[in-house]
Design a protein around this nucleic acid. Sequence first.
DNA 1: GAGATTGTATGAATACTATCATACAATCTC
DNA 2: GAGATTGTATGATAGTATTCATACAATCTC
Lengths: 124, 124
Amino acid sequence: MLGSLILQDNGVPIYVQLRDQIAAAIGRGELKPGERLATMREVAVALAVDLNTVQRAYQALADEGLLTMVQGRGSFVAETPARPRNRENEIHILAAKVAAQARAQGITPDELADALKRVAGPDA
Amino acid sequence: MLGSLILQDNGVPIYVQLRDQIAAAIGRGELKPGERLATMREVAVALAVDLNTVQRAYQALADEGLLTMVQGRGSFVAETPARPRNRENEIHILAAKVAAQARAQGITPDELADALKRVAGPDA
DNA sequence: GAGATTGTATGAATACTATCATACAATCTC
DNA sequence: GAGATTGTATGATAGTATTCATACAATCTC
């Protein structure tokens, strides 16, 4: 995982870059549920950034429910939760939210949907 | 163009969001070479941000060679768009990130993609 | 239990982001 | 030429991001 993290000097805060790249690795299935992530210190040293900066990224991911952090043990990719009750509605809400995210990057929901099919295709 | 600009509170600086969205619009061909962009003041008023913030976004785009600014006249999409951005890659990164969001909620990327198609369908 | 590992937390210093207010300079319209 | 429009510029201020240094707390290994 450490090897795939790259920081760019493009105005985007470091913790945001880390947050998004780790989330992407999880989404790609590169990091599987239950798997242990690199320690915050490992990431900090490898990328030559501060421990607090890495913590901020991990914390943001934990807030999103993508990983859990356990003091003394490490950080782990969250297990996929059981299927929610009102599934159709949840999907619809997420889709709307994600469509907005896409548009905010100049990407159409349609383009994103196609890309998602490609992400899901190979293994899902 | 004004209508397609959206700002999110996701940790990314405003001027970066503007810069990237306008770059994406140019890359998508939505804004054509030679075409006049919205005035900095128009963008500032429409999005309720400061004129200086918009200027910074425009300046960054001018530095990239994507547009030219002429005092008293306005800003225009460059005739020879210098370095087209790697849109495909940006789309893939977003897709992977969004897939993680979905999985964390017990939703498969495939289901999300279908829902997105439905969102996009009516108008896109 | 001792020591190492790992996440959590705080306070200070520096740089960047964004706003507000204001003004100047080049261009266009009439 | 007068006035409006549009890009350019500056100084002050508040908030955020990042680093540095340091320390504490929970867990694991031996």
